[in-house]
Design a protein around this nucleic acid. Structure first.
Length: 578
DNA sequence: GCGATCAGAT
DNA sequence: CACATCTGATCGC
């Protein structure tokens, strides 16, 4: 969850994704996407009052975000103060102090973020340099090179600071299967189940948040059915999504939700009931999108995990993985990086508490050892505070991954009463397939997920014509691969064994169904070589140029003091070359 | 009665 | 561990 306070050092007159406290004084507001944790204060009475008396204060966001925001009446008072901007269209914005008339000019561009519909990053250019606020994002490796506005001619722009979605900027989340791989896994599971009979239905147990829509549209397309959801209101101007959802419950794919009693209806009931219209009981499996991550030095190619007789988890992430973030940062080479997210599972108190006893050699030794056998020179990426926080907690050692038990061992055994279902499902078991690692070139067609995530809405006078000319996918800039193609080792096999032990017979691992039989071109979405290959390549173990005890001490004192730690290149060099 | 904050839930 | 909420309790205005 974002803990970004709302303002950037370079441009303190604007506020992004935070609207309370100091941000009440901002001259302009920016909303990167329509998730509640980025909307703090946005419906507050203080802000409401400020708007009433202001002629110049605006909220800038994408068209889709505007539409989603205004579909909630609580934000209706923003209507006359929202300026929707086109993607990748630099826009000059005057930041006017209404009291003094003082003025500052900035040029802001919205870049696709791939996090949820309408999500964008904000590129701000002005007298204090070029800075990038990423909001939340999921970009695949190499995507930065496809965003024109990050470049000036054939060069990457000089970026002073990146305000970073660091949700998974932690080696523990080194690799997350790509969107395409996750979608393929889900598609395969759904295919197996739905094909059994018309009474076999799938419940996608999605959280109450935007970001699953591409799942709906892709599955809807694939299975020629609409997805049952609670409400269509927010999508009424988004035909691309609207055409794939319905409030009619007579469909085989559901993503409906029930406010109260989700827990006891998992598996054998749908939130909307358990009987077909003719009285036949439905045969239901639930698929819960979750973020699965890869342990140190392991590689999971399975994206579906069975967690009960009729329940599954499917890998699904709204956020870029550690390696995707590193790729992004190594491409942009910003001077400063400001992580916006407190490490998952850690609170500020944790950080404070951890600053004792961190510097024992025993904790750092395994990291150093790994470093010595590191064969691949990695880029001079800074290690942000989040990394440092985790190093002592998850010391890297070669012995660790064998007992690696990820989250799945604690999955509840859900309704087992229907043993019939359980048996049937085992037929759906899938063999893992791997693709040998190869660095992809970006010369083939780009995936353009970004285009989906920023699907422009239909206004009365518009149609979708702009969708036919994706502006976001140029191929002129070669990507800089940072992961080394080490190829596969036995790690994933071992991991699967360990999981089997953990979970017993109830768990069936299913992997990506095909790989040889599908060519990327036959997929509903064109996949680039680089994206296909990156899913199955085993990246080298995350580097660690370990900071020395002195460096850690300085950083931890800052962290413990609650300071906003700024890691600059200077710091990085100190850390790396100490 | 509303907002802010926190604990606890999925 | 939890992606992003949602609900309910408590406190203060």
């Amino acid at each position: 969850m974002s803990s970004f306070a709302g303002r950037m050092k370079e441009y303190p007159n604007i506020s992004l994704d935070r609207f309370d406290r100091e941000n009440l004084h901002a001259r302009a507001y920016f909303l990167s996407h329509c998730h509640k944790d980025h909307m703090k204060g946005l419906k507050g009475p203080l802000l409401k009052r400020k708007l009433k008396f202001s002629l110049t204060v605006k909220l800038y966001c994408s068209f889709v975000t505007k539409e989603l925001l205004l579909s909630n009446p609580k934000y209706g008072f923003w209507e006359d103060h929202i300026v929707a901007l086109e993607l990748e269209s630099p826009t000059q914005i005057s930041l006017i102090d209404e009291a003094s008339g003082e003025k500052e000019e900035v040029v802001v561009s919205l870049l696709p973020a791939g996090h949820c519909p309408g999500s964008v990053m904000f590129l701000v250019e002005g007298a204090q340099g070029t800075v990038l606020y990423t909001g939340d994002f999921r970009l695949a490796e190499g995507d930065a090179s496809r965003i024109d506005l990050l470049h000036s001619g054939s060069r990457v722009k000089d970026i002073r600071s990146v305000y970073l979605d660091s949700t998974f900027y932690d080696p523990r989340y080194y690799q997350i299967p790509s969107r395409e791989a996750c979608l393929s896994g889900i598609r395969g599971l759904v295919q197996d189940w739905l094909s059994k009979s018309a009474y076999h239905v799938v419940w996608l147990n999605c959280k109450a948040a935007y970001g699953y829509e591409y799942l709906f549209t892709n599955l809807g397309e694939e299975f020629h059915t609409q997805i049952h959801v609670n409400s269509l209101d927010m999508f009424k101007k988004m035909p691309e999504i609207l055409s794939h959802v319905t409030t009619e419950r007579a469909t085989q794919i559901h993503a409906c939700r029930h406010p109260k009693d989700e827990e006891f209806m998992r598996g054998t009931r749908l939130p909307c009931g358990m009987w077909a219209s003719d009285g036949t009981p439905l045969k239901i499996i639930s698929i819960k999108p979750s973020t699965i991550w890869f342990g140190e030095r392991t590689q999971k190619t399975n994206v579906i995990v069975r967690t009960g007789a009729s329940s599954y988890r499917a890998c699904f992430s709204f956020h870029s993985s550690y390696s995707e973030i590193r790729d992004f940062l190594s491409y942009l080479q910003p001077i400063n990086i400001y992580p916006s997210v407190i490490p998952i599972g850690r609170t500020h108190a944790d950080v404070t508490e951890l600053s004792d006893g961190l510097f024992e050699q025993a904790d750092l030794a395994p990291v150093r050892k790994r470093l010595m056998i590191q064969e691949i020179p990695l880029t001079n990426l800074p290690h942000p505070p989040v990394d440092l926080v985790h190093l002592p907690l998850t010391p890297i050692s070669t012995a660790d991954y064998l007992d690696c038990t990820e989250s799945n061992d604690e999955e509840d055994e859900e309704d087992e009463e229907d043993s019939d279902l359980g048996k049937e499902e085992e037929e759906g078991e899938r063999v893992e397939k791997k693709r040998e690692g190869m660095e992809g070139s970006d010369s083939v067609s780009s995936p353009c997920w970004e285009e989906f995530f920023t699907t422009e809405i239909l206004t009365d006078s518009q149609n979708n014509s702009q969708n036919s000319q994706p502006p976001t996918c140029s191929h002129t800039i070669p990507s800089i691969p940072i992961s080394a193609g080490l190829g596969l080792n036995q790690a994933d096999t071992m991991l699967i064994q360990s999981e089997d032990i953990c979970q017993g017979d109830a768990t069936i691992e299913t992997g990506w169904k095909e790989s040889a039989s599908h060519t990327p071109q036959t997929e509903p979405v064109n996949l680039s070589e680089s994206q296909m290959s990156s899913d199955f390549e085993v990246p080298s173990t995350p580097d660690s140029h370990p900071p020395g005890p002195d460096d850690l001490l300085v950083l931890y004192r800052s962290l413990a003091a609650g300071e906003n730690v700024e890691l600059t290149k200077l710091d990085t060099n100190r850390l790396i070359h100490q």
